[in-house]
């Protein structure tokens, strides 16, 4: 018994197993295929929303989260020469946890149709470890990587009043963090689709009892708390049938905690976690309704 107690104590003291790295679901590619990507994607977008590939550029970004440096891939859709134009606005799209930018390309090119085709520039990136980006995913890495994208936009002449940030699912974490704690540019408005409330909510939803999130992971993804100090207007979209991040325990908490008064909610009947734009399209004769919602929010 003495030996058993000793062993258990050693296990506890030496324990270093954490589930953080498993929170991320990247996959690697050797090249981006965009419209030629023939694997499963969340949504399918008609050809009318295709983008002239001459306006699409992938480039390297250097990111440093203080613990590790990584060369990641950034993507810009639009005319880079216009980034210093005071009338040119950019949507920075922070994608979700799945795979890489090819998987999210239909969503990215859809955003390049907000207002009209290529009216807005669209910036996206693969977080470290995703797609062609080097490194290992981490929460601090998410923030550093999106910060690197913002820094690139700033270096090209973009100003804060023309930057709009859109975070989907996991991408809601850097979208909120860099809106609340900006280092360079401060996004003017924030769009969150199916956001996390926090890692702790995810744990408690599955555990039923209110065990601390630290029992499972060191990751925080604490949007629900951070959003309390968000000064920017918020557009929140969430599927009522979200089968991954419950609208009740995640999205509603984030929306409630935003101090307002400029905040807008769109709860979409029939939408799950991944198909909200497509469900809106099916319910409203095409993607224009979704694009109009985004455009109205940005331009009002």
């Amino acid at each position: 018994m003495k030996h058993l107690s000793t062993y258990l104590l050693i296990i506890f003291v030496c324990a270093c197993a954490r589930l953080d790295s498993n929170l991320y679901n990247p996959s690697k590619v050797t090249e981006y295929k965009f419209d030629n990507f023939n694997q499963e994607t969340d949504i399918s977008v008609p050809e009318q929303y295709d983008i002239d590939m001459n306006l699409v550029e992938v480039f390297d970004l250097e990111s440093d989260d203080g613990e590790a440096k990584a060369t990641i891939k950034g993507l810009f859709v639009g005319d880079q020469d216009l980034l210093s134009d005071p009338d040119y606005k950019v949507i920075l799209y922070c994608h979700g946890n799945r795979d890489h930018m090819d998987y999210y390309w239909p969503r990215i090119k859809l955003l390049a149709n907000v207002g009209s085709k290529n009216q807005y520039g669209v910036m996206s990136l693969d977080y470290r470890g995703y797609g062609m980006s080097a490194g290992k995913p981490s929460e601090s890495g998410l923030y550093a990587d999106v910060r690197a994208a913002i820094n690139w936009l700033q270096s090209k002449g973009l100003s804060s009043d023309r930057l709009y940030i859109y975070g989907f699912s996991l991408g809601s974490a850097p979208a909120v963090e860099l809106s609340v704690n900006p280092e360079t540019l401060t996004p003017k408005k924030v769009i969150l689709e199916a956001p996390f409330a926090s890692a702790e909510v995810m744990v408690q939803d599955a555990a039923l009892i209110a065990i601390p999130g630290t029992y499972v992971t060191n990751a925080k993804i604490d949007n629900a708390n951070k959003v309390k100090s968000m000064n920017q207007p918020l557009l929140w979209l969430h599927g009522l049938d979200d089968d991954f991040l419950s609208i009740k325990t995640h999205g509603e908490v984030v929306f409630k905690n935003h101090p307002g008064p400029d905040k807008t909610a769109l709860r979409v009947e029939g939408a799950t976690h991944t198909n909200l734009p497509q469900i809106l399209a099916e319910q409203n004769d095409g993607y224009d309704y979704y694009l109009t919602i985004i455009h109205d929010f940005i331009s009002k």
Binding site: A17, L19, M202, V203, A207, L208, Y215, V216
Partner: peptide, 8 residues
């Protein structure tokens, strides 16, 4: 990911 300790 969350499996090992959730519902512990």
């Amino acid at each position: 990911t969350l499996i090992l300790l959730i519902l512990n």
